[in-house]
């Protein structure tokens, strides 16, 4: 390892012996590519990310709790996590439906539908945000019909949820799709021919098989939703304690030069996303064991 950057994280990444591949390979370039990878990763991701934790650690526990778990911060977490959960649940249902329809049925326009599913990955979040606001605001395309019914979508948590449904859908569809493709239709046909009803086939045969993929997609959509900013702020209304998301609160604190509060809230969100990352890995390990065992 020719790179001599003294990042504490780097030590855990690549132990000292890593320079020598276990199986003797004649392929060159390990030192160069690995050095480049570790250096670039440390400089762009690991060292900058560690500043948040080091700054938080320097604050002292009581100060950290005072700003990281203030009433306003708690309200913001509730909005962020609550709307992300609601959106992920909606997406679990409709994402599974979309994946099912795409995998199992052939219909005109299927390829266009399939391409459209990835739109949230390709459309910049700010563009999605202003478009959704134009649709759901009180005088908007759909909003003007909902408002007389007493349903206000934009400028409150329902609007945030709508934006997060947009953002999260492809995570569920693309997680479930490959598993559905591998699921042989013969098992279902056998169940059907033995007298099972379609919903029984779904609950007993299909759902258990796709559950790990569905949970992975759910966790990915949820994690993305919690941190989402661009598509949300235009439609959210951004009222403290009501429709203010945690990422926006970080920016608000930063603009008021309140670095301690911004850092503490960021730390809470980072820890939350690390926990979700761990959960996703556990789900995947569990599903691998189920497949292999």
């Amino acid at each position: 390892m020719e790179i001599a950057l003294s990042s504490p994280l780097q030590m855990t990444t690549v132990p000292a012996q890593a320079g020598k591949p276990k199986s003797k390979s004649i392929i060159p370039g390990f030192g160069l590519t690995m050095g480049l990878t570790i250096a670039w990763l440390s400089l762009v991701v690991l060292i900058p990310l560690s500043t948040v934790f080091i700054r938080s650690a320097g604050m002292g526990w009581s100060d950290f709790v005072a700003v990281g778990f203030s009433e306003r911060a708690m309200a913001a977490y509730k909005v962020s996590f609550g709307t992300a959960l609601a959106a992920a649940l909606v997406n679990a249902v409709f994402g599974l439906l979309t994946a099912w329809v795409l995998v199992r049925y052939r219909f005109p326009g299927r390829r266009i539908v399939n391409a459209l599913v990835d739109l949230p990955f390709a459309l910049p979040t700010a563009v999605a945000g202003i478009a959704l606001t134009a649709i759901y605001a009180g005088n908007g395309w759909i909003g003007q019909y909902l408002e007389p019914l007493g349903i206000q979508v934009a400028y409150n948590p329902i609007g945030i949820t709508v934006a997060l449904i947009f953002i999260g859908l492809p995570f569920i569809v693309r997680s479930v799709e490959p598993v559905l493709e591998d699921l042989s239709a013969e098992v279902e046909e056998a169940a059907l021919s033995l007298g099972a009803r379609p919903w029984q086939v779904f609950a007993r045969v299909i759902l258990p098989a796709i559950l790990p993929a569905l949970l992975t997609g759910f966790a990915l959509a949820f994690a993305r939703g919690v941190g989402e900013y661009g598509s949300v702020i235009f439609i959210a209304g951004n009222m403290p304690f009501k429709s203010e998301i945690a990422p926006l609160l970080i920016i608000t604190q930063l603009e008021q030069y309140n670095y301690a509060a911004a850092t503490a809230i960021a730390t809470v969100m980072l820890v939350a996303s690390f926990i979700m990352l761990l959960l996703i890995n556990l789900i995947q390990a569990w599903s691998r064991r189920r497949v292999n065992g």
Partner: peptide, 26 residues
């Protein structure tokens, strides 16, 4: 190549996907 800590390295590379963009700026 094979080396110890490979899956940890992959996790680190994926890390920015699970960080809120606002935190990335911060």
């Amino acid at each position: 190549f094979d080396f110890p800590g490979k899956s940890l390295l992959i996790s680190f590379i994926d890390l920015p996907f699970s960080v809120s963009p606002v935190v990335a700026g911060l």
